[in-house]
Structures are given as C-alpha cells and as structure tokens.
Design a protein around this nucleic acid. Structure first.
Lengths: 254, 254
DNA sequence: CGGTGTCTTGAATACCATCAAGTCTTGTGG
DNA sequence: CCACAAGACTTGATGGTATTCAAGACACCG
C-alpha cells in the first residue's frame, strides 16, 4: 500500500548529479547529460536552472501509471524497466523494455499522460526533468533536437519491428529476436563484452511472455529447446549466447 | 515495369492547390493546409515559397519504397493507402492504414528513408512537401508544432494499440477492432454518417489479414461469422455496422 | 516454516494455418 | 466482344502451434 509513494527523491538541482551521469552507459547517446550541460551553458538568457530529480525504486515497483498526470519526464539511469499495457482480463502486453539512457517515452515531452504503465524490473535509478524546461532546452538547441529526433525514430522503429514480430513470426523467432534485440542494445551501450557473449539478464520468463504475446509455459518450453540445441545458456538471471550464428539464423529466417 | 515511375506530377507551387485542400476531409486536423497558409503568412522573412507537388496514383501502386531516399514528405489528400513491411518469405505486415489528411509518417520529417513500403489501396491523391522547408515552417510556428506533436502521439498510440491487439487478442477481436478503429477515424473526418452506419470500405480481405496478422482464409471465415450473427453487412467494397453495440462488445471484451 | 513466485514437464484442447477445390468477378488481349 | 487468365472470396478437411490445465520441484523471504 505504501508502494504508491515508492520513489525516493534524492536531489533537485543540476550540478551535483554530474558524477552519476559520468557512469551512465548511455552517456554519449542520451538526452540526459546533454540537457544538464545545456543548463550550464545557458546562464545567458536568464538565471536559468533546469529542475531535475533523482529517484530510486526497487524491482517490481511502479514508476508511473497510465492515467497519472506528470509534469516530469523520466529518463532511466540504471537498471531495467518495462512499459506495459494492461488489459481488463488481467493479461499484459509489454510495449518496450527500457534500458539505461532511455527516455521512458518521447511522447511525454508533449503530453502529461504516459498511457501505459512503467514498471521497474530490476532496482532502477531514474532522473526526471520538468517537461516545460526540458522541451525549451531541446527545442532551442539544434543538436539536441537532433538527438531527440533520433530517439523518437528509434522508438517508433522498435515499435514497428514488434508489430511485425507479433503479427508474422513464430514463437521461436519472437523470443530469439527479443533476446538479440536487447543484446544489441546493450552492446551499443558498452554494457556487454566477451566471447562468447555473456551478460546479466534480469528478465523473468513472464516478462518474455508478455513481450512476445506468448504464455509463460510456452516460453519455458522454447527456452528449454534453445538450451538443448546448445544455442544459449540461460539461468539465474544470466545469459550466454553460445552459438551466435545459429541463434541469429533462428531469429531471422523462415 | 513502367510502374516504377507511376506518380504523375501535377503542380509544384502553393496557391493554386488551395481549392483542393478546401475539400480535404482533414482540413481542420492536418498539417497540409496549415503549412500552405503559413507559407503565405510568411513573406516577411524572405521571398519564401514552400515547394509542394500533387501526385495521383492508381490503386495498388507503390507510393514510396522502403529503401528509397526522399527529400519530400507525402501527405494523403484522398483515397486509402497502407504502410507495409515485407518479409523475406513474401508475407507482409501492415503497420498502418493511411486516410485522407494523414501524413505518411512523422519520422519522414527527420530522415529521408521511410523504412516501410507505402502502397495505394484505392486511387490516391497525395501532396509532397520538401522536408527541409516543411520542418522549418513547423518548428517556427508554435501552433503548428503543436499539431505535429499531436500527429506524432496519435501515430505512436495507434502503433501501441496494434501491438496489444496482435499480442493479446483473438482473431475476432483483432478484426472487429481494426474495423471500428477505421470507422472511428473516418467519423472524425466527417466521412461517415447515417444510422445504421454505412460507408465505402475499399479494403480487400487480404489487407485485413495483413493488418491483423491472420490469413486471408481465416479472415473470410470470421467475417462470414460476423455476417451470420447480424453484426455487420460487408460486401462489394461497402460496409454497414448493423449492431454497433454487439460489434463493440466483440471488439473489447474477453 | 508456510507462503509466494519461478520454472519445468506432460496431457488435453483450442485456435488458427494450410491445403484444396470450386464459384464469381475483374481485367486483358486477341 | 469473347475467351481466357488472374484475383477475390468461400467452404470443408486436416494439421500444427500455442494455450490451458495440472502437478511438482525449487528458491527466496518474512
């Protein structure tokens, strides 16, 4: 019940947060660092200070609800989260997994209602910016607008890919593609190395099920089959891709 | 083979096109008219003239290809089109149906590659704007930026809804929801009246199949079932919703 | 230590795909 | 204008993929 107020505020001003951003794996890509810097490079116009706040939530806790109104735009600093649509019968569809450096939704720059539930998968640290200020900064700096448009396009591209996966691919393909999609995103962030590729993988099978439109039971069966074929090793919140070529073949082909 | 060059250019300057826009059902909503007007209200800055061109393509012709580069952003003036992702095995997934007044994709404002195929379903009239100019106008007029952000949000919301439909709903629900979604969009545009609701409905069953992730055969069976239950009347490119309440019940419930 | 959440496995079932045959319409070239 | 081909739709039979139901193993936590 007290979960409702789960997030703890940590701070609410720009400068002291910088060190945290230095460790952010999405340091290069994301809007977060850029926005903070802009607020420093920007003392010209006015005594400008962008309001931001760091929050921490434990695994499984809600970050924001579909119907709530927020004037804050959250960006994930560390941990994994998911944006989820709930159906009246209790089933769920995961629209997207959120990784460090991801903005929860670019649409939040324009409307206060997320229209989907955002839930922490691991412990999550995230930072919120005030929408009006973030918007002003983004739109007054062409190079930031550029970053925004790239984030927007990637968000849409991933949604479109998911539509294709759900509409036209088998369970094996969906699951393999989900995993590879996540691995590729982690690689871009320098959060995975090694050969064979091995990484922390905090998703439960029910997360995979909700993202692929399958049942947890069937996900279990498919993963077991992948294991038996020596494609991957997956257990205890960790994943290794033993046969990258074979696994990618399953993900793409018919 | 000569299909490749299917589109015929009609004109390439703003003013004479106005009368056509006056009939556009999305007159209020869309960016098109607004952008044209802005180009008039804008002689201040420079001898500014936005480049636009009208095109007409017959049914079943391609409007743009996934890998082509365009510096033009198309907006549908009349007719129906679809954006489609093709898979290597020849199957297709329709991401979205485009109705009069729709911008083909808001992402085209930022990148030249559509990354999906756009195909005319009926004969289609559309107008293209030069990306750089359209962008400049949109971003220099707050009220237009507002319209753009609403278009962006709606595009994303519809994609998310489709993900849920494909991931978590039965064939009956998907088909009913597709139809109702289209009808609602047409109502917003004042393109449908009457009680019982009756309208031109140019989709072939294979379009419905490609949009819902089903096979044409199964679409036929479901539609026949809907007909037998007296929910809808559908034939000869026209559709009537005989039992709106019952039909909406099928679309939403479990 | 019971309770809850996670995962696995097997059996029965449902839903939708595939295959196939046939009707009807639409379009096209002789 | 007709003949023929291609596309659109329907219907039935059969099969495969994924769901549902059920039971049990295991880990973690208060």
């Amino acid at each position: 019940m007290q979960a409702r107020l789960g997030a703890r505020k940590a701070q609410s001003c720009a400068e002291p947060a910088q060190s945290a951003c230095g460790q952010c794996p999405a340091y290069e890509l994301n809007l977060c660092q850029a926005a903070s810097e802009a607020s420093w490079a920007f003392p010209s116009a006015a005594p400008f200070k962008i309001h931001q706040a760091d929050h921490t939530v434990p695994a499984r806790r809600t970050i924001c609800r579909e119907q709530d109104l927020h004037d804050a735009v959250p960006i994930i600093c560390s941990g994994w989260a998911a944006s989820i649509i709930m159906l009246s019968d209790g089933s769920r569809q995961i629209l997207s997994f959120l990784l460090p450096g991801d903005i929860v939704s670019t649409a939040l720059l324009f409307e206060p209602r997320p229209h989907c539930l955002v839930e922490a998968i691991t412990d999550v640290r995230y930072r919120t910016f005030k929408r009006s200020e973030l918007r002003e900064i983004l739109f007054s700096h062409p190079e930031l607008l550029d970053k925004l448009s790239r984030a927007w396009i990637e968000e849409k591209t991933r949604a479109d890919q998911l539509i294709v996966d759900l509409g036209r691919r088998t369970a094996d393909e969906r699951i393999a593609r989900l995993i590879l999609g996540l691995v590729d995103r982690l690689i871009k962030r320098d959060m995975v190395h090694g050969d064979p590729l091995e990484l922390d993988f905090p998703l439960r099978q029910h997360h995979i099920a909700d993202a692929t439109g399958l049942t947890p039971v069937h996900v279990s069966k498919v993963l077991s089959e992948f294991r038996r074929s020596g494609l991957i090793k997956i257990s205890e919140r960790s994943l290794a891709i033993l046969d990258p070529a074979g696994f990618r073949r399953i993900a793409n082909m018919r």
